[in-house]
């Protein structure tokens, strides 16, 4: 379908089209919230819908994403642990190896 008025700028913000864009926007929003979140909420998880900037906090990743998905069921959102971020290992991510 072609735009009948190509010079008209879209009113809705364009959703991020790539993963790195979501991560960069999410990190930027998180940095702005850092002082309000840390250290009080350290260890909890925050999900950020990067277009609206809306945040959802939960004790676990599953809890945080469940509340976010109620409002944004199809949107791909940014998630991170408040305080110290997740560590990656040679096996997987979010994982501190103990059986080696």
């Amino acid at each position: 379908m072609t735009n009948p008025n190509p010079e008209e700028k879209p009113t809705q913000p364009k959703p991020p089209t790539n993963i790195q864009e979501i991560i960069d926007k999410g990190n930027k929003i998180y940095d702005g919230l850092k002082n309000a979140l840390e250290p009080i909420q350290n260890g909890k998880y925050i999900v950020i819908e990067v277009n609206s900037g809306k945040q959802f906090i939960g004790n676990t990743t599953d809890e945080a994403i469940a509340s976010a998905k109620k409002e944004f069921p199809t949107q791909i959102m940014f998630i991170r642990r408040i305080g110290q971020g997740d560590k990656a290992s040679r096996y997987s991510l979010n994982f501190n190896p103990c059986y080696q």
Partner: peptide
């Protein structure tokens, strides 16, 4: 289905994207 994205830090401090 892809639900969310984040970052994890490698031992050398380099961040890598994580798909959830």
């Amino acid at each position: 289905q892809l639900s969310s994205v984040g970052e994890a830090e490698l031992a050398n401090g380099y961040p890598i994207p994580v798909l959830y």
